[in-house]
Design a protein around this nucleic acid. Sequence first.
RNA 1: GCCGGCUUAGCUCAUCAGGUAGAGCAGCUGAUUCGUAAUCAGCAGGUGGCCGGUUCGAUUCCGGCAGCCGGCUCCA
Length: 769
Amino acid sequence: MNIIITFPDGSKKEFASGVTPLAIAESISSKLAEAVVAARVDGQVVDLTRPLSGDVAIELIKPDNPAGFDVLRHSAEHVLATAVIRLFKGAQVTMGPRHHDEEFYYDFDIGRPFTPEDVEKIEAEMRAIVAEDQPFTREELPKEKARELFKQLGQRYKDEILDWIPEPTVTVYRNGDFTDLCRGPHLPSTGRIKAFKLIGSAGAYWRADASREMLQRISGIAFGSEKELKDHLTKLEEAKRRDHRKLGRELELFLVSERFDAHEPEPEEAIEALVTGRVHFASTPAFEWIEPTLAAIRAALPRRTVNFTGVNVSSHRDDSDRIPVLRLECFGPRLDADEQKALRALGDKLLADSRERHGTPVDLRYQHRAFEDIGPGLVLWQPKGGLVRTLMEDFWRREHLKVGYDIVYSPHIAKSDLWKVSGHLGFYRESMYSPMNIDGAEYIAKPMNCPFHVMMFKSRKRSYRDFPMRWAELGTVYRYEMAGVLHGLMRVRGFTQDDAHIFARPDQLDSEVDRLLGFVLHILRSFGFTEFNAYLSTRPAKFVGEIPDWDRAEKALAESAHRLGLKYRLDQGAGTFYGPKIDLKILDAIGREWQCSTVQLDFQLPQRFGLTFVNREGKEERPFMLHRALMGSLERFFGIMIEHYAGAFPPWLSPVQAIALPVTDRHRAHARAIVEQLRAVGLRAQVDPRNEKLGYKIREAQLQKIPFMLVIGDKEVAADGAALRLRSGEDRGLLARAALCDLLVEQCRIPGASADQVKALGIEDYALE
RNA sequence: GCCGGCUUAGCUCAUCAGGUAGAGCAGCUGAUUCGUAAUCAGCAGGUGGCCGGUUCGAUUCCGGCAGCCGGCUCCA
């Protein structure tokens, strides 16, 4: 019996029933059969070896297609697992990712971490398995049969995976000595994995749950050809070259988490004693410890002043598992051997005491203070970075004022009570810095700016005529982020949000969202980003407010994105607890995605703070509130720009725009004259006055990524001009002084919203009714 | 916070197996007056992240802590 196969281009061909997609590919060309990794049959991706029956539509999938990529990488995972069970007796296999971005990985439990040597061995074993060209075979069997099978194989984790599969029948794939529970599909055989490389190993929690077993993840990359693999590695190299941490140091833009040696040993050296212990936070307030501990330490160190300086709560998992760290400072000469011994003995004693009292360990140690330390995740903006930031901020302020925002400021700390009312202490406590005690009241560093803006709203009775109110602030916030996630400027603990809160009447929702999205695009484009991905995040499982309000708000965001021609992806259930949001991610020069902008609707705060306005009928009504950030955080956005431009900022953002390079010192005076004139028209220009060869100065200017180099020698002095060299290497030749000036002014112009844009962004409701 | 790795001069990196550290660049001094990505010479620079342990002796071996890097998780 024959069946009719329909191809994507609509053409049809007849085959014998039971034909496999692989055979079909071979009938077209052997090259295609070689390249193809899976087939889409009536919309479903299946193995190339799956026999077909009945008339179907078929599409042969190659690795250049996302589905094909997935199959390739998925098979690579199985090869990885095969290598691991061969090399490690009793290794437990768990699972790989559902979808693959760049990398593939598979998590194992071998009772210990993998070493870098293990990974090398595993990769070698994988190559052997590929060379063996083991066929992948698929088998369907009832769930209970599968349970028995994996029990026999000694694979514990598979049992748990089977628990969360609802279907009565499951599929199992085999290759060589490896059998895995797997939906598939897979390549016909391991020999088809030509280009792959293991990237490394790291710990990962079973089911991403920190309370479960720590597994060992091995990750790698796989491609359809060696060339693609090579290209990918080149891209990684390129990313490394652009790393903002490296460029930040080289260009002297910022410092983060820097530790400096202490300057001079001081006559009165300070040491710091830390007392840590695990106690039940709710039933045993850490403060009970302070007095007895202090007294004991004072007795052990009679020659020193010992002060209590605070309590840090260092674990943030949940209330019952917090670790209060008592921070004590001891001033005085460095401890001698006897004193250190005494302190250690005291530590042992405290340990024993606390075990008795709380059933938990306590640990006392001291540390000589040998460093001048800022603290992890805190940023210093050096002069050149500070200048770029100033330019970013100035631009930001000017554009905001143009389109009807007001600029506000708020303090860095506020009483705990405010954070209680706002709900942060309930929902956000784990990310907040510990309170400080001032005159008997508790204050906390702000993790967000919104409560302050809300308080300003409440300062007087509001009328429907006041709306919309758009209050923007470059507000520096502090968030306690887990130590392991900090990363250069991209993830820090103190950062400045380009925040704003828009308070408006319900009838203004659509127009405000429209204007906002338009404004976001304008700002991001001005900084040189032209490609975006938008994500609409809808109601999560845990939410506040009424469902009709949510639906309406989600619709408003979606429609607005639509009106602006912004294509968005739906992120179901990923909204914040207080409202839906739309996030914009920008694509940088090498195609990486970065989240910056977020626009969030909030039903929660106006309600918690009881915000109202008086409407046209004289009745109290609740306004809505929009939170938004465009750049997100100045620190992070700066980091992204550094990587996007590889440190070569556009001229308007370059710390130094032009540098004059006199060929010898007799050309210095003329160089100074040119620079003076450039400065007079507002350009940031400098002279390199050093007695060095021209090549040397050019090299330095080039490394500093200065956009315009002005070479000045005899010819240029005679012609009263300069020879312009661009950082691209292009030599523009001699330019007369005036022409040079005009050109540079033009090239360094600061972007800004045009009159049309301002109009589009809606200045009209500035007019009072 | 968890898992692994790393931490040597301002930066980039050496020091084969435990015997108290070297180079290039940067810095300082001097010479050189030079045309599109590095002129030469000299000088100075380090209680090898911090605190302990083992050892006759630790940068090297072991433990604790801190920081960084790659992941988990989370997010601007």
